[in-house]
Design a protein around this nucleic acid. Structure first.
Ligand SMILES: [Mn+2]
Ligand SMILES: [Mn+2]
Ligand SMILES: [Zn+2]
Ligand SMILES: [Zn+2]
Lengths: 145, 145
DNA sequence: ATATCACATTAGATATAGTCTAAATTTGTC
DNA sequence: GACAAATTTAGACTATATCTAATGTGATAT
């Protein structure tokens, strides 16, 4: 999409805009399906330039550190990645591990005092359950209305 | 601690109370430090009965499925486990990955309609930042008040 | 233009976390 | 005790991610 904007945001974070790094960032901005590192690696290599597996991981690490990308850990599955665009929360499917965006809403801060000497960076809300694909089909069977 | 209570909660979930399974559950109830599978394996084997690595993983899986234990995925680190006692949230340290309990507070439900056909099971709040050990020491150095 | 140097990429080896298999054992029930 | 189902086990295996050391690249200085 906006080539220049991506370039600027990389350089604004002190990261060179290399073809491989750009490809990772652009892919994440064009897709909101929270791909895994392996999926990103495969996707950016379907078009040139060819990027190595190590570079894909290196760049994802750099982008996360720079605050441009969010990493979402899912129990028992590969981590997923997400360009930090508009603020949002996540729904994670118990069955298939899919991560989906949920509309942002403000989050209660920790009760004052319960934070102690800790330094708070962010609050994150995670919804869990079954995604649309995994929720039981209703068919013609008798089931809770 | 309460041997009988553990036994009953296992059997109430359709799980036999084997020595290995009991040891995992008892360890999790006695410690609220969110150990990894490897730490649990090591701890329960410091005392008898000796439990294999596979069994430790099997039992953790069973306990999570039964709803007695919670698994916490942490980016780039081994999963951590937590006996589900009193409801609470979690603080996860950006630097050391430590998971700490935070006082429970009610969580906003997703805006009605934004849930679609998904089935919601739970809402979880995660605070992130630096834990007490990782927060910058203040010493005598000049730093933000 | 060429030298320089920090940053970046690469292939492949390595590490870590977790799962699977198939045989042996334990447990609850009759 | 006999039986069946659940559980345990060692170790092989898979998946995910990181590391290493050599090579490449581009911005800047000369
Ligand atoms: Mn997202
Ligand atoms: Mn906890
Ligand atoms: Zn699903
Ligand atoms: Zn810490």
């Amino acid at each position: 999409m906006d080539t220049e904007a991506i370039k600027r945001s990389l350089e604004g974070s002190g990261l060179r805009c290399t073809p491989q790094r750009y490809a990772v960032m652009a892919f994440l901005m064009e897709h909101n399906r929270h791909p895994t590192a392996a999926e990103i690696f495969e996707a950016v290599n379907r078009v040139d330039p060819r990027s190595s597996r190590a570079t894909t991981y290196n760049n994802l690490r750099d982008l996360v550190q720079a605050g441009l990308v969010r990493e979402v850990a899912v129990e028992g599955r590969a981590a997923r990645f997400d360009a930090k665009g508009m603020r949002h929360h996540h729904f994670i499917c118990d069955r298939c591990g899919q991560v989906e965006d949920m509309e942002w809403c403000d989050v209660p801060r920790p009760a004052s005092g319960s934070l102690g000497k800790r330094i708070l960076r962010e609050c994150e809300l995670i919804f869990r359950g079954l995604c649309t694909k995994c929720a039981p089909r209703r068919h013609a069977s008798r089931s809770v209305s």
